[in-house]
Simulated scan of single mutants.
Amino acid sequence: MRTLILGGTKFLGRVLAEEALRRGHNVTTFNRGTSGDDVLGVDAVRGDRTSENDLAALAARGPWDAVVDTSGMTTPMVEGSTRALADAVDRYVFVSTVNVYEGWPTDPLDDESSVREYTPVGPAGESDADEYGRLKAGSEQAVRTTYGEQATLLRPSVILGPHEYVGRIPWWLSRIQAGGRVLAPGRPEWPIQPIDVRDVAAFALDTAERNLAGSYNLAAPIGHSTFGAFLGACRDVTGADAELVWVDDVFLREHGVPEWVGLPLWRDYQGTWHMETTRARAAGLTCRPLEETVADTYAWLRGGAVVSSERSAELGITREREAELLAAWGTREEAAS
């Protein structure tokens, strides 16, 4: 099978390229060559996907059975690539996001949940997350317009695993490995359902190989794991003597801890970790244990990997801030007892 990957050097794109090669695909990647090394064995094509000339030159190298688009971040960008590749690619697999849903992260979601309406200009005061979801919704619309029944839309929730550039698991591994009293947010039994990057890559290629159309929610099953099991796995793989101190959600919000980024993956909206994946599971989606994802991420980091990006720089709280919060929590607990 001839497969084109838009991206191919970073996180999901890289894992996709590796898995496609493992399956015997003839793999072409298209990127600017600024985000990482090429996977050995791919036909690496350099270019800017916002350039009509570069896209035309890429299309001339086809045809391909499928393209997997991991780097389409804005609607105009995806519109350009769908038009340029219309005659060079049979199926267009677009990696979208759970953010396209109107109800995320507050409401439980399923395959039929309402998707945001795309407008070229967002409303005043639009958040970065809402803008991201709106532009991805517009991108989905562009793929469907050009490819129709040959369009496949993947809507992953939180993706974790080796090569993660955001740094969510790496932040927790680093903090827990340092030991001592660790502020653990919320409740240990709080269910979470992040999905391993390798499971996303495998399903994306399955849809391409089997010519599956439509949209698919991608997440681990509801109840797959808990925040307590996640932090416990971080402690197990690092061998640290960390003591997890579970601190109430309301207390953390009252003290100004930013959800999602202050303590990575912490957000207690019901909908954040309540995404039904019925259609994807019926099509063959399988998800490995979160403990395996944690262990393999730790092994990747120990191999010398460095997580560095604008998003990773925003993650976490300082040890000083953590100590202040734990002290305030202890005082509150003593007063209540």
Rank of each mutant, 00 (worst) to 15 (best):
V95M: 14
L55E: 14
A124T: 09
T75H: 07
G133D: 07
Q141L: 05
K136A: 01
R61C: 08
L135D: 15
E102F: 01
V121I: 15
Y118S: 02
D65K: 14
A66E: 06
A56D: 07
A60V: 13
D107G: 02
R61T: 15
S96E: 13
M77T: 12
Y101D: 04
V67C: 11
A86T: 01
A84Q: 03
S127Y: 00
S81M: 06
P105D: 12
A142G: 00
S139Y: 08
Y92E: 00
G103D: 14
L58C: 00
G133K: 00
R116H: 10
W104V: 11
A124G: 08
P108A: 09
D90H: 06
S113T: 11
A84H: 07
D87V: 11
A151I: 00
Y118F: 12
D54P: 02
G125L: 04
S139G: 13
G125M: 11
D65L: 14
W64Q: 09
G133V: 03
L55C: 04
T145M: 08
S96I: 07
Y147K: 01
P120T: 13
A142P: 00
Y147T: 06
Y92A: 00
T119A: 12
P105F: 13
Y92Q: 09
Q150F: 01
G80K: 07
L85A: 05
V68T: 13
V93E: 10
F94V: 07
S139T: 01
A151G: 13
L55A: 07
A142C: 03
E126M: 12
D69M: 04
S71Y: 13
Q141T: 01
A56H: 02
T119E: 08
T97C: 04
V121Q: 10
D90R: 12
E117Y: 13
R144H: 01
V78H: 05
T119Y: 06
P120K: 13
V89S: 06
L109M: 08
D110K: 12
A56K: 10
R61P: 14
T145D: 14
P63N: 10
A86I: 13
T119K: 10
M73N: 14
W104A: 01
P123R: 15
T82G: 04
V67M: 07
N53P: 07
P76I: 11
V121A: 12
Q150E: 02
S127R: 05
S71R: 06
D90P: 09
L109D: 03
T75E: 15
T97K: 08
T119C: 03
G133N: 05
V100K: 03
G103E: 11
G125K: 00
E126C: 14
A151F: 09
S127K: 05
R83G: 09
E140D: 10
S114L: 03
G148Y: 08
G103S: 01
P76N: 06
D54Y: 02
F94Q: 04
R91W: 05
V115F: 07
A59C: 04
A142E: 03
N53G: 15
P76D: 10
V98D: 09
E131Y: 15
P105Y: 09
T75Y: 07
L58S: 02
S127M: 12
E131G: 15
D54G: 04
G103L: 07
Y118P: 00
V121N: 03
